[in-house]
Amino acid sequence: MVISFSDTDFDGVQTPHDDTMVITLTTVNFKVKSVLVDNGNSANIMYYSIFEKMKLGDDSLIPMDSPLYGFSGEPIRVKGAIELPVTAGTTPRQSTIMVRFLVIKLPSAYNLVLGRQNLNTLGAFVSAPHMKMKFPTASGVGEVRGD
């Protein structure tokens, strides 16, 4: 299966831009907006505010003792981890993978951060200039446009 980007993928994109890739994904039948696609990050993050909105409950968290370290080098306490199905794309060109999120209780402009490991699991190619992510599915190439 060939995955490529062309000038038609620029439709609806104002160029030039330096925007981050922010998309909408579905997890546990919940449409989650403001998902940062971060191929430089090895961790998948779920912010506690969306965790609460999804009504998952603290009892569903896997305990974690290790902190995260951000840009500032300061340790960030992890409330726990949770593994959830995440679906990208729309029927019939969609793909669902299991993602292990680290749940942290900090303010953020994002609800989730999808890191490089799960982008690789999806087989995703991200084009920041096109504001689009494409990935293989059983029905052809799936895609998600940046919000």
Rank of each mutant, 00 (worst) to 15 (best):
E74A: 14
E74W: 03
P75T: 04
P75E: 03
P75Y: 12
P75H: 12
R77L: 11
V78T: 15
V78P: 12
K79L: 14
K79D: 13
G80V: 09
G80C: 07
A81T: 11
A81F: 08
I82C: 03
E83A: 14
P85N: 05
V86K: 09
V86W: 06
T87F: 04
A88N: 07
A88P: 02
G89Q: 01
G89R: 03
T91Q: 09
T91V: 09
T91Y: 15
T91A: 14
P92K: 05
R93N: 10
R93T: 11
Q94T: 04
Q94G: 04
Q94L: 12
S95R: 15
T96N: 11
T96P: 02
T96A: 08
M98S: 14
M98L: 14
V99P: 00
R100E: 08
R100M: 12
R100V: 11
V103K: 07
K105S: 14
P107L: 05
P107I: 07
S108G: 00
S108T: 03
A109Y: 05
A109D: 06
Y110E: 00
Y110R: 05
N111E: 02
N111R: 02
N111F: 11
L112P: 03
L112E: 00
L114T: 11
G115Y: 08
G115V: 08
R116S: 11
Q117P: 13
Q117H: 10
Q117D: 11
N118P: 01
N118R: 03
N118M: 09
L119T: 01
L119K: 07
N120G: 08
N120H: 07
T121H: 13
L122I: 11
G123N: 06
A124C: 13
A124L: 04
F125C: 03
F125A: 04
V126D: 01
P129R: 00
H130C: 00
M131Y: 07
M131G: 05
M131K: 12
K132W: 09
K132Q: 09
K132N: 08
F135K: 00
F135T: 00
F135D: 00
P136M: 06
P136E: 06
P136S: 10
P136N: 05
T137C: 02
T137M: 09
S139I: 00
S139L: 02
G140P: 03
G140D: 01
V141D: 04
V141C: 09
G142N: 00
V144M: 13
V144E: 10
V144C: 12
R145A: 15
R145N: 06
G146W: 15
G146R: 12
G146E: 08
